[in-house]
Amino acid sequence: MTRKKIEIKKIDNISSRQVTFSKRRKGLFKKAQELSTLCDADIALMVFSATGKLFEYASTSSIEQVIERRNGYSANHRFMDHPSTDQLQVESDSNYNTLCKKLEDKSREVRHLNGEDLQELTVQELQKLEAILQRSLSSVSKIKDEMFMQDINTLKRKEVKLIEENQRLKYVVPDLISGHMQQSLESVISGSSSYFDDSDTSLNLGLQLLK
């Protein structure tokens, strides 16, 4: 048989309320003790009855020790979990100063690489800068030579193609010229033949009229 579900609301009967408070308080403290034993947790409970009477439970020797630990945690960790506006401002200023310092250092390095403000450097720093510039110059020269070789190879390929095209034209152009000249000559001959044919016809007509 299942237990009747009790509606969670204030108990109007004072005697029933006191009995329920006593039973539930003991059950609550028992559950706290079990939780502390099973999980090795420090637990402190404080309960005030309707009449103002204090009931307390602590898994340690006293509830004050748990409260002190709680206060210590608040002082050390609450600030870390929820930093204040001042702390955020301090962190923001720190980050800004760090970025400004990095920007200043990089700007100084660029000026040194451009040969500016070298008087502020020591001999060792100048030697280090010289080594950096030599490595940079070597890299630039290497890339430049590679690009020159690429351009030369490209021009050589174009030269080969032009030579091949020139050789092909040496054979094609004479044939084209010969064919064109032959067509022109045939046109001239054909025109001449037509002219003479027309002349002969005219002469024949003239002779017939004379007769």
Rank of each mutant, 00 (worst) to 15 (best):
Q89R: 14
D93W: 01
V123Q: 06
R157C: 09
A131T: 06
I132F: 04
M147L: 11
D105P: 01
H77K: 14
N95H: 08
N166R: 14
G72W: 05
R111S: 09
D86G: 12
G72T: 10
N76Y: 01
K142T: 15
R70Y: 11
M149T: 06
I132Q: 03
N95Y: 10
E159H: 12
K158R: 15
Q127M: 07
S84V: 11
S138E: 10
L113Y: 00
D105M: 15
S92I: 03
K102P: 02
K144A: 10
V140A: 15
V110G: 04
D151F: 11
E146I: 05
L118R: 02
N153M: 11
C100G: 02
T122P: 01
Q127N: 07
L126D: 03
R168V: 00
K101D: 07
H82W: 12
A131K: 07
K170R: 14
K106T: 11
K102N: 09
Q134W: 03
R69Y: 06
V160P: 00
S94I: 07
L162F: 09
Y171A: 09
K106P: 00
L126V: 03
S138P: 05
L88K: 12
E91P: 04
V123E: 08
Y96M: 08
L118Q: 03
D151A: 12
T154P: 01
N71K: 15
S107Y: 05
V140D: 13
V90M: 08
L137R: 12
T122Y: 15
D151W: 03
R69H: 10
E164G: 10
T122L: 15
Q167M: 13
E146R: 08
M80T: 02
S136R: 14
I67M: 14
L133Y: 03
L126F: 06
N166D: 11
I132T: 10
I67Q: 10
L137F: 11
M147I: 03
I143T: 12
R108E: 04
C100E: 13
L103G: 04
L162H: 13
L113V: 00
V110F: 14
Y96G: 05
I67L: 13
G72A: 15
N114Q: 10
